[in-house]
């Protein structure tokens, strides 16, 4: 069920690479765990994000959770529609609710990122554990 063209983190972000531009969002599993999302705080265009470091927050009615950047680079674009429509993250987490586009120094993703299959397995394990 997790799109095969995306890569995933154990903190439940997804990333898609096109050229040297990486699009980042949170996964369907993440939005389900959080519940109704009502607020999102994203980094500003032009800011620097680092792989594994917090770069924003997403809040549901009941919880706050940090977003960890899967990649290192400069934020080129921010999905500003999410400020007005945070519920998109519940509706289409892998689609129109993308969060930031990051320009990378080299057109490659960190090896530590999971494939869809590995992520699916990881989520199942986490649920079971």
């Amino acid at each position: 069920m997790y799109p095969a063209h995306l890569r995933y983190t154990e903190q439940h972000e997804w990333v898609q690479l096109e050229g040297n531009l990486a699009t980042v969002g949170i996964t369907d599993h993440a939005q389900k765990e959080l519940g109704d999302i009502v607020y999102v705080e994203l980094p500003k265009t032009g800011s620097h994000v680092e792989a594994g470091k917090a770069c924003g927050t997403v809040e549901s009615v009941k919880a706050v959770s940090e977003i960890y950047s899967p990649v290192t680079g400069e934020v080129k674009e921010v999905n500003s529609s999410l400020a007005e429509n945070p519920e998109w993250i519940n509706q289409e987490p892998h689609g129109k609710a993308w969060m930031i586009k990051v320009s990378l120094a080299t057109p490659s993703l960190p090896d530590s990122l999971l494939t869809a299959e590995q992520y699916e397995e990881y989520v199942q394990q986490e649920k079971g554990g």
């Binding site: 519940g35 109704d36 009502v38 549901s60 009615v61 009941k62």
Partner: peptide
Amino acid sequence: PIEYSGIVTEH
């Protein structure tokens, strides 16, 4: 139970 169908829906 913290939620069934979602806090906003239940609210």
